[in-house]
Amino acid sequence: MTTFSPIQSLFGGALIGLSVVMLMAFLGRIAGSSGIIGSLLPPNPVSEKGWRIAFLAGLTISAFLLVNVTGYSPTIQNVTTEPFLIAGGIIVGVGVTLSSGCTSGHGICGLARLSPRSIAATLTFMASTAATVFIVKHLIGE
């Protein structure tokens, strides 16, 4: 069980929005996590690496800062075993590379500018995730 947290989630979402707006206002860039990560990887990584590495560094140290500045300690409850974390990770890596985006790039940046590609991608991965969760939790799990 997890507890319904509308206010906290809305606030977290607003912070994500603020970050997305910052990146577009100052750098003219989409804050798509999979795109920023993937474009640094071989083969043919992008030449403009600085801002991307800085953004990813910010993501990685955010937990440390959050805990030490606000005292808020986020909960992480893994839902599957190590072999499935590995398999799922590979599947996510392949999927977001093919679809050129994930929850942030398509689901937030793309929807915010009403991109037809992003709307189609978001509806597809939402449906696919829901179907997968149903299979994992109700058909296999119990």
Partner: peptide, 20 residues
Amino acid sequence: LIGGAAIFGIGWGITGYCPG
């Protein structure tokens, strides 16, 4: 686009982790 998004959803559903 659509195939990749469908594949991504499978991994997100299994693990609960997305790239961001």
